[in-house]
Amino acid sequence: MRRPVVLFDLDGTLIDSGPIILASMKHASLTVLGREPDEELVRSAIGGPGLIAQMRDLDPDRVDELVDAYRAHNEPLHAELEAFPGVLDLLDVLRGEGRRLGIVTAKRLRTVGLAIDRIPELAKMNVVIGAEDTERHKPEPDPVLEALRRLRAEPAEAAYVGDSPFDIRAAKAAGVLAVAVGWGGIHPDERLLREEPDALVHTTEELYAALGEPGTT
């Protein structure tokens, strides 16, 4: 099996959460700062070092207020979350082949839990790495490497699948196969391609092919 360990980003990769992230960023900025944020700036930061860093970019003096406003707006919206089409079926196929799967995200574990409550199939992951699990976050390799450490796996055995430039950089820095997905709705293909992923895919069938079939080397 070419990649017996497959790690996934959460937002924009497994779950279609881009719209609620953007809505909550807009709400926080309007509520706290009285102005709409620069949407391109917001989009470009999604998937990176985390919410606090994003809010620091909006206003470094009002980070706590912005974070509180964001979370108050965002958490109830998890009741509307859906997985991207075909993703859960692909996870079942990979799991049935004996591959070990994981989530590596910049979200807090509590917030990951809200997504799992909405989409219980995500609870079947072998490992979940959230914001609390490493001091450094994507694009640093630490979260990906922590997932591998817990799975007792080597980078050469693994792939990391994500929808943002930060995911690709983290994967490459960790020495795992870097697979970008183009269905996230936040980062355009050209931005992803600038990071030189090992593959850019737009369907779950293409993703399966990029991961390699069981028994291949």
Rank of each mutant, 00 (worst) to 15 (best):
R2K: 12
P4I: 02
V5H: 04
L7W: 09
L7I: 01
D9C: 03
G12C: 07
I15S: 08
S17Q: 12
I21N: 11
L22F: 13
L22V: 15
L22I: 15
S24Y: 11
H27V: 01
L33I: 10
G34C: 12
P37I: 01
S44R: 14
A45Y: 08
I46G: 02
G50Q: 14
L51E: 15
I52N: 09
M55K: 09
L58Y: 14
D61I: 03
D61W: 09
L66Q: 12
V67S: 06
A69T: 08
A72N: 05
H73E: 09
H73C: 08
E75Y: 06
E80V: 01
E80S: 13
E82F: 05
F84P: 00
V87D: 00
D89R: 10
L91G: 01
L94E: 07
G96T: 00
R99Y: 12
G102W: 10
V104D: 01
L114P: 00
A115C: 05
D117V: 06
R118T: 08
L122D: 01
M125P: 02
G130M: 10
A131M: 09
E135Q: 13
H137L: 14
P143A: 03
L148H: 05
L148Y: 08
L148T: 03
L148P: 03
L151F: 03
R152V: 06
P155Q: 06
P155R: 07
P155M: 11
A158Q: 02
Y160P: 01
S164W: 06
P165M: 05
F166S: 05
I168Q: 05
I168V: 15
I168G: 10
K172W: 04
K172E: 02
A174C: 07
V176Q: 04
A178T: 03
A178R: 02
G185M: 03
I186T: 12
P188N: 02
D189M: 04
D189E: 15
D189S: 14
L192A: 02
L192S: 05
L193F: 01
L193H: 02
R194D: 14
P197M: 03
D198C: 06
D198I: 03
V201G: 00
H202E: 04
T204I: 11
E205F: 00
L207I: 00
E213H: 14
